[in-house]
Design a protein around this nucleic acid. Structure first.
Length: 277
DNA sequence: ATGAAATCCTGGGGGC
DNA sequence: TGCCCCCAGGATTTCA
């Protein structure tokens, strides 16, 4: 599941080039194939196919879990990988698309960049004003301007359980199931704690834990789980995620799994004491 | 306001 | 070995 660290890794590789392929930055689109139209959130396929050729990539970045590719006509290509999305370079000569390619971008030198997405949940937008898509996102966790005080103030406004709140992209942008569980463990906070019950020290602990796990994830080039492989190895450093029944690395108590807000949640019942009731 | 449930999808895992 | 069933998981939409 690509979350903030995985998307950040992909953005860097597209910007700088990687062992898997060249940089996307500075390239000009020659053509685009739409193999699964529902991947395209906006505009409609005909408009998309007509508009992209000739456009040059001027910058590449990230907001939350969205990949942002700015074009020389002022438009922005936004990609959300959701569950199983990935971007894969294919070198020339031309060959059949990969089995789960939904969009394929073509370049003049024969390289192709495929938006590959087995589960078809990923979405792509080509818009003039990115705010129409990104407008409701919460703060960037790693933004230097975002402070522990801001975070505490936001927590106090919600009675929602911590786990569900951390996954709400309007509350905070970029966390998914893996990093939410890891951050809660790191902070020693139970996923069922109502957000407004956190003390200022607890909020500060969670704030720093979130930043720490995200930065660790980025340093490891993200996590490679299931069949989504980005070359990262953070999956070998999980403290709780998908470790139900295995001993807590800190105290040895078996890790528990609970479904919260339809999401599997993993935690140590000893290091993360449950709320009252 | 809050949250639960349904929805979209398919590869993979468990059960037999 | 193979078949069937069911499930995870992000985000949105709908229902209670």
């Amino acid at each position: 599941m690509p979350e903030l660290p995985e998307v950040e890794t992909i953005a860097r590789w597209l910007r700088e080039g990687s062992p898997e392929g060249p940089a996307l930055l500075g390239r000009t689109f020659q053509a685009v194939e739409v193999l699964w139209p529902r991947t395209l959130a906006a505009p409609d396929p005909a408009t998309f196919i007509a508009r992209l050729p000739g456009r040059r990539v001027t910058a590449i970045g990230r907001r939350g879990k969205f990949l942002r590719i700015w074009l020389d006509d002022g438009a922005v290509l936004l990609l959300h990988l959701r569950m199983s999305g990935d971007l894969r370079w294919q070198p020339p000569p031309a060959a059949a698309p990969h089995p789960h390619d939904r969009l394929v971008f073509h370049f003049a030198d024969g390289w192709r960049l495929g938006f590959n997405d087995p589960r078809k949940f990923g979405r792509v937008w080509l818009v003039n004003d990115e705010q129409t898509v990104l407008g409701d996102l919460g703060p960037e966790p790693l933004d230097p301007a975002f402070s522990a005080e801001d975070f505490y103030a936001r927590l106090r406004r919600s009675r929602t359980r911590l786990k569900a709140l951390l996954l709400d992209q309007r509350f905070l942008a970029g966390l998914g199931n893996i990093y939410a569980d890891e951050a809660l463990f790191q902070a020693g906070l139970h996923p069922l704690r109502p957000a407004h019950t956190l003390t200022p020290p607890e909020a500060e602990r969670l704030f720093h834990a979130i930043r720490q796990v995200l930065q660790a994830g980025i340093a490891h080039h993200g996590a490679s789980i299931d069949w989504v492989y980005r070359g990262g190895d953070f999956q070998n450093h999980f403290a709780v995620y998908r470790r139900a029944g295995q001993p807590c690395r800190r105290c040895g108590t078996p890790i528990q799994r609970l479904v919260i807000g339809q999401r599997g949640s993993h935690f140590c019942p000893h290091c993360q004491p449950p709320p009252e009731g």
